[in-house]
């Protein structure tokens, strides 16, 4: 075999070596085969920590109960006790630092999520009392008459 074979061969080998050197810099060192093997566990390990760092937005009712104890106690005595504060008041995130004020959803659509009557026999929905939104005091927010923390007309 003459030089016309080896010369391009050396060029190709050189290119491969360059690519491998570049790869060793570009691919993170924690990238590789992990616990679940090559098929399911071939990844960059640092990504697990990246996902853990995502900010929590919904803090749960225990976050609200110390400062807003009056509201907390009133709703916990009502049938609405099963509903989290943030489902209507919006995610707390770092309240009161950020956001200083939460945006309350007072729309009829929010109440209708449960209180639009759907007569579905094999679902819990059929057991919830509902209203016909086209006939029942149209154009009024439900909270005009019903206090969502004490959803009983005689109280408000």
């Amino acid at each position: 075999m003459g030089n016309h074979v080896f010369r391009p061969l050396f060029v190709v080998i050189g290119i491969i070596i360059l690519i491998l050197i570049a790869r060793s810099f570009y691919v993170p060192h924690d990238f590789g085969v992990h616990e679940r093997g090559y098929m399911y566990g071939w990844y960059r390990e640092g990504n697990i920590e990246d996902w853990k760092k995502v900010q929590v937005k919904y803090q749960g009712r225990d976050y609200c109960k110390d400062c807003h104890s009056d509201k907390y106690e009133s709703i916990m005595r009502s049938p609405h006790a099963i509903i989290q504060c943030e489902n209507c008041h919006g995610p707390a995130v770092d309240h009161p630092a950020n956001p200083p004020k939460l945006t309350i959803d007072r729309s009829r659509q929010l109440c209708l999520r449960c209180h639009y009557p759907l007569p579905y026999p094999t679902s819990g929905r059929a057991k919830i009392r509902g209203i016909d939104p086209d006939r029942h005091n149209r154009d009024f927010e439900c909270s005009t008459c019903h206090n969502p923390h004490k959803p009983n007309l005689s109280i408000r």
Binding site: I83, N87, R113, C114, T122, S123, G124
Partner: peptide
């Protein structure tokens, strides 16, 4: 059985 479709 428990789901009422509220979408919350």
């Amino acid at each position: 059985y428990k789901c009422v479709g509220c979408g919350l």
